[in-house]
């Protein structure tokens, strides 16, 4: 036979192909996730423990990030705050992604009126400015954890839906899906066997972006005092509680905000690091 095969080396599936910045981002994000998991073991002081007579204390050997408006250790507060900031955002992102991907793939695979109605409703939801919608929800239902997670998930589901649907529609038009349809496969089999496995990369990328948005949204709410309520405190709340320290240049104001920035920048760098591989999905890899 005279058909030359392309280079026979195997491509690393979903393999790590990170740029330097991407690697850096991955390390930062991984570090924060570890911190969130191991906060009690890492923190020197308790969450509510007042350990110093000085409020808004500067950085020191004892208190590496200074003390807050009550004289608590800021480093410990940030370590504990990671659980709320990352945990809540992850929960909301996962919920949004789950709804978005399921509905998006279903809409693409079934098409017709179902797709039409769903897409229209999502368009309506997506045109609600996020923070404002959250304000209305919090005003109506109060700022409990389920309300916060639910609200964030509702705000970001339409975006996840759109991405998932558009990727799925592209895949759905491909001939291998037509072949499956002509074979007589059921819609759900087509979704699981043919469409979903090809959505992994774009959807993961989108998951990361959505996580960043949700972190920013929930922190902003906390900063406004309308997010997670005391005594629980995420990084946004820490900034708010200590805003009086701004005049003294206290690290207690800046550090929690910096923590948010490192997390979100880390995720973004990570996504950017292997975002380039997305385009390769269907490219002839010769």
């Amino acid at each position: 036979m005279n058909e030359a095969a392309p280079a026979t080396h195997r491509r690393v599936r979903l393999g790590v192909h990170l740029s330097l910045a991407g690697l850096f981002g991955t390390i930062v994000v991984g570090g924060w996730i570890l911190v969130a998991l191991a906060a009690p073991a890492l923190a020197q002081h308790g969450e509510a423990q007042i350990v110093s007579g000085t409020v808004f204390g500067p950085m020191s050997r004892r208190f590496p990030l200074g003390t807050d408006y009550l004289g608590r250790d800021v480093l410990s507060l940030i370590l504990y705050g990671a659980r709320y900031t990352i945990g809540l955002a992850l929960a909301a992102t996962a919920l949004a992604a789950l709804c978005g991907i399921t509905l998006g793939t279903l809409a693409a695979a079934s098409g017709g009126a179902f797709d039409g109605v769903l897409s229209r409703s999502m368009d309506t939801l997506i045109s609600l400015p996020g923070l404002m919608f959250a304000l209305v929800m919090v005003a109506a239902l109060g700022a409990s954890v389920p309300v916060l997670v639910g609200t964030a998930a509702v705000i970001y589901t339409p975006g996840a839906f759109r991405i998932a649907r558009s990727v799925a529609v592209d895949i759905n038009a491909m001939e291998f899906v037509l072949v499956a349809r002509a074979r007589g496969e059921k819609t759900h089999t087509i979704m699981i066997e043919e469409i979903l496995p090809n959505m992994v990369l774009p959807v993961l990328t989108d998951f990361g972006l959505r996580f960043v948005f949700i972190v920013l949204l929930l922190s902003s709410l906390s900063f406004l005092g309308l997010g997670i309520q005391p005594p629980a405190a995420d990084w946004g709340s820490l900034v708010r509680e200590n805003i009086q320290g701004l005049g003294y240049g206290a690290p207690a104001v800046i550090m929690p905000a910096v923590a948010i920035a490192t997390l979100t920048i880390g995720v973004n760098l990570m996504i950017d690091g292997f975002g380039g591989r997305r385009r390769r999905l269907f490219a002839d890899e010769r």
Partner: peptide, 12 residues
């Protein structure tokens, strides 16, 4: 970096 930074960090 700028899009991932919360506004209140920039402001403060």
């Amino acid at each position: 970096a700028s899009v991932s930074v919360p506004e209140f960090l920039v402001a403060t």
